[in-house]
Design a protein around this nucleic acid. Structure first.
Lengths: 113, 113
DNA sequence: TTCATACTTAGGTATTGACCTAAGTATGAG
DNA sequence: CTCATACTTAGGTCAATACCTAAGTATGAA
């Protein structure tokens, strides 16, 4: 049984903000520059950049600066590893975490309505 | 596209704390009283109760007071509805939210190690 | 009735997070 | 070289969170 997982803390924390979830949503359609990403939000750019930092610090996105432009994308590796995991896991931990998962899915359902 | 989902905010926020995740874990083994749940944690009872409030406010747990004892359990209905949802959903929203989901699963994998 | 148990309420501190504005840096276009 | 673009850094405000201790309430046992 894990005592404490800073990674999990940070990921869930990152997902708890609607701006950050919207950024992830937009990035699922492909990479984008910071200013481009920020455009839909009624927020000063420095504030928006803080959100990107949160997402990057927990590994959900990554970015690369080319010239003046920082291009942001979803981090790819965790996604692939996760797919494998879903097939492999068994046992009590799995069942238990699936419950958490189910709750998350339920909440997403409500968001969709 | 959803603008803002307080529910999702609250659920993810609740899951961002290791104490609260541990409580959910313990509750997956069955209901328990507040003091019983609090016992493993090096924390004053009022502080612990705050965590329970967070979990209850976002619907992850529910509780009933019988006599002096408040018994806490995982909330059952969201779980069932979520199972149905996983089979039904299609489209871009689904793919996009699956990505979020996959990230969560990856993080859980890391927690398990 | 008296006391212990099982919380609950009240109130305080310290840290963190989400925002802002203003000013700075670095790059690319003209 | 000059200027606009695309951020980035600095620094400040305000609210929310995670703790705490101390004191309260309600219930059940003796």
């Amino acid at each position: 049984m894990p005592k404490h997982s800073p990674n999990l803390d940070r990921v869930f924390y990152a997902l708890a903000d609607p701006t950050r979830r919207a950024v992830l949503a937009r990035l699922s359609a492909g990479p984008a520059a910071v200013t481009q990403l920020a455009e839909p939000f009624d927020m000063a750019l420095p504030s928006f950049s803080q959100h990107l930092k949160v997402l990057e610090n927990c590994g959900l996105i990554r970015s690369k600066k080319e010239g003046r432009v920082r291009t942001v994308e979803l981090a790819p590796k965790p996604l692939q590893a996760a797919e494998n995991w879903m097939v492999e896991q068994r046992g009590m931990w799995e069942r238990r975490l699936d419950q958490l998962d189910a709750f998350v899915l339920q909440m997403k359902k409500e968001q969709k309505r």
